[in-house]
Simulated assay, not measured.
Amino acid sequence: MEVQTQAAKTIGGYIQLQLPKGNVFHPGLVALNTGRNAFEYILRVRKYNLVYLPYYTCEVLLEPLHKLNIAYKFYHIDENLDPVIDFDLEAHSCLLYTNYYGLKTETVKRLTKTISNLIVDNAQAFFCKPIANADTFYSCRKFFGVPDGAYLNIGTPINENLNQDQSVNRFSHLIKSIDINIEEAYNDYIENNKVLCYNDIKNMSALTTAMLSGIDYEACAAIRRENFAFLAEQLDDKNRLHLNLAPGDVPMVYPFLSNDAAIKQTLIKQKIFVATYWPNVYEWASPDSFEYALTQKLIALPIDHRYGLDDMRIMVNALKPLI
């Protein structure tokens, strides 16, 4: 009788990195290595030859377009961050819309009813559930301390076997942020961003999957909503941008649009680090455009699970004298 053998499981040895085990937030979606590669996945499946992109978006979205030699055109958004669609979508073209700051889900729902060739960029809206038949991609590291990772909602799988990514060499900025501090780790973070450029589409790494399986998503979402609500109460009357937190929305940041481009640097000097979305817009859009003003004057106040209401008060007290 022939005995069937299986690959031996390793037993013993040193104790591995211990991570809590649970469930991921998007179990039914395709788990990939990066958001831009999830975008590329869609383009490969749908075979679009022209993509309409908002002027106000991240330049990394051009990477798959260049790789696949797909043409693109820009469109404007209005002061509600809704798309200005003053053009006709050509055959085999599509429109990409960004769910800005996780606060534009109602616009996404409306667009899915009127535009068949729509791609939803939920990189800033991790907690937004995908809409059936709407190609949608997510980026994990915008919301959580992971080195990479993305999710994709698409009905048609890509016709090829994907390798699994490995994240072990993209981990130093996360470890340093705990063991030293986040400022000392910043250069590693920048280098990690560079490493993520022009990678092949791969399945999400085992490390990133394990990390995402141990997150208390309900708690993270509740903290974001509570922090956002506090900042809205304190700052909405001075905010040039009027965005409502709809039921079910879990925002990425509290976006405060000021009149003074210098405020961001003043806050940074006080160790309140606010990101700029996105410097490439200075090259794409004209100086008198709304998109240019957003990039220059929007203050993205952090509201994530690392912070509580005491931290929100610190930011409000620093910001109010400047506005």
Results as ranks from 00 to 15, higher is better:
125 A>L: 01
197 C>M: 13
51 V>M: 10
177 S>K: 03
224 R>S: 13
126 F>E: 11
144 F>R: 00
117 N>W: 00
179 D>H: 10
303 I>W: 06
279 P>L: 06
179 D>F: 11
246 A>N: 13
251 P>I: 10
192 N>S: 09
83 P>A: 08
194 K>E: 12
140 C>W: 00
182 I>K: 10
292 Y>F: 15
151 Y>D: 06
286 S>Y: 00
195 V>C: 08
93 S>I: 02
268 I>S: 07
135 D>M: 02
166 Q>L: 09
184 E>L: 11
233 E>N: 14
121 D>M: 03
52 Y>C: 09
45 V>W: 00
127 F>P: 10
130 P>F: 01
313 R>G: 02
183 E>T: 13
93 S>T: 10
281 V>W: 00
11 I>L: 15
285 A>W: 00
320 K>P: 04
284 W>H: 06
228 F>L: 06
80 N>T: 14
215 I>L: 13
223 I>M: 15
30 V>W: 05
149 G>R: 00
276 T>G: 01
172 S>G: 02
318 A>D: 04
97 Y>A: 02
47 K>R: 12
247 P>M: 07
20 P>K: 05
182 I>D: 09
269 K>E: 15
193 N>T: 10
25 F>I: 05
53 L>I: 06
199 N>Q: 15
193 N>D: 14
148 D>L: 00
130 P>W: 01
199 N>S: 08
89 L>F: 07
241 L>D: 06
160 E>A: 10
139 S>I: 07
32 L>P: 01
94 C>Q: 03
196 L>E: 08
214 G>E: 13
21 K>I: 14
74 F>H: 05
108 V>N: 12
26 H>M: 06
285 A>I: 04
139 S>N: 03
251 P>L: 05
238 K>G: 09
58 C>D: 14
146 V>H: 04
173 H>Y: 12
289 S>I: 01
307 Y>T: 11
